[in-house]
């Protein structure tokens, strides 16, 4: 159909000014670009700016994690009398200190669903070069993505804490006095949940970054959290009976159990008897930090090497 086009029949080539304007304003540079990416991923994890179906998984899974807190509140308002008389042991109910240890599986589910969401599409649709030609470099990209996932997880982890906190206050006779007495009890949740969020986010994202397909990334993350959780504990169990000393270190590498013990350190709770007595709770905190660094390193390494 070129015959009808006057430009094609004109003798020499020419360049048309189509009126595109150049951006003359200030450029805000690398940190702002990284910040934008962070905010965008965080919104993406919760499905904001995406269709409703994208919001379903994160909110349902975060809701599942918080659900027991709500149930506990309902229950405890009924049975608080029986607790007072010693009929039920209050330590068995979910509280600030043991919440993650009891219900952490849902955090894994949240990771399986959302961690691949954060990094896989960019590889699948081959848009990484578009990022790397902007103000951010590869490291910034990886860190912005990681921080956004960690932030999202921290929010998920804090919802039941806040629910328990508010619930306990409202249920007490004197709200202001209750705030004073509850506050110190709840406070360790902040550092312990920060550690949990950073640690599991780094694991999940590092593993996810190795597959462009979300489904396979999900399987990889799942396999890690199930097997690295389970296998060391089995070996520890058998080795401990056989009297081997080195197996005492194995529970340190488990993701969920290890972080549950790290939480014990923040709350000053004694470590349960089925864990090696030679390893203090502080060691689990250290292990959590080391694992975070290690997987952050793997993530950064992956993005240093990845073809884009």
């Amino acid at each position: 159909m070129s015959a009808g086009n006057p430009a094609a029949s004109s003798p020499a080539g020419s360049i048309y000014d189509l009126g595109y304007r150049h951006y003359e304003g200030k450029r805000r540079g690398r940190w702002f670009a990284a910040w934008s990416l962070y905010v965008d991923s965080l919104r993406g994890i919760w499905g904001f700016g995406r269709p409703t179906s994208a919001k379903a998984a994160p909110f349902i899974l975060a809701g599942l994690y918080a659900l027991p807190a709500v149930i506990v509140l309902a229950f405890s308002s009924i049975i608080s009398n029986s607790i007072a008389t010693g009929a039920t042991n209050p330590a068995d109910l979910p509280n600030y200190a043991n919440y993650f240890a009891g219900i952490g599986t849902f955090i894994v589910l949240f990771l399986i669903a959302q961690a691949p969401e954060v990094v896989c599409r960019d590889q699948r649709y081959q848009v990484l070069p578009l990022y790397f030609t902007r103000a951010i470099d590869r490291f910034d990209y990886a860190m912005a993505r990681l921080l956004s996932l960690a932030t999202a997880l921290f929010l998920v982890l804090m919802v039941p804490v806040i629910a328990l906190f508010i619930g306990d206050i409202l249920m007490s006779a004197d709200a202001f006095k209750a705030i004073g007495s509850e506050w110190p009890k709840a406070l360790p949740s902040i550092p312990s949940n920060l550690l949990i969020a950073a640690s599991v986010a780094s694991i999940a994202l590092a593993l996810s970054s190795y597959s462009p397909r979300r489904a396979y990334a999900a399987v990889g993350v799942l396999a890690y959290f199930l097997l690295v959780e389970f296998v060391p504990l089995v070996i520890y169990g058998i080795g401990h009976e056989a009297g081997a000393k080195w197996v005492d270190y194995l529970p340190l590498i488990t993701p969920n159990t290890g972080l549950s013990r790290a939480t014990d350190w923040f709350f000053g709770t004694p470590i349960p008897p089925d864990f090696p007595s030679s390893i203090g709770a502080g060691a689990y905190v250290l292990a959590g930090l080391v694992s975070t660094l290690l997987f952050t390193g793997i993530l950064a390494w992956r993005y240093r090497r990845i073809a884009a």
Binding site: Y216, V219, G220, A223, L227, V231, V234, I235, I238, G239, E241, A242, A244
Partner: peptide, 20 residues
């Protein structure tokens, strides 16, 4: 990935034997 998973029982069996 699946081969790695499938190798686990063998691995754990070797650990059991390690502890006699």
């Amino acid at each position: 990935l699946l081969l790695l998973l499938a190798a686990l029982p063998l691995l754990l069996a070797l650990v059991f034997r390690l502890f006699d």
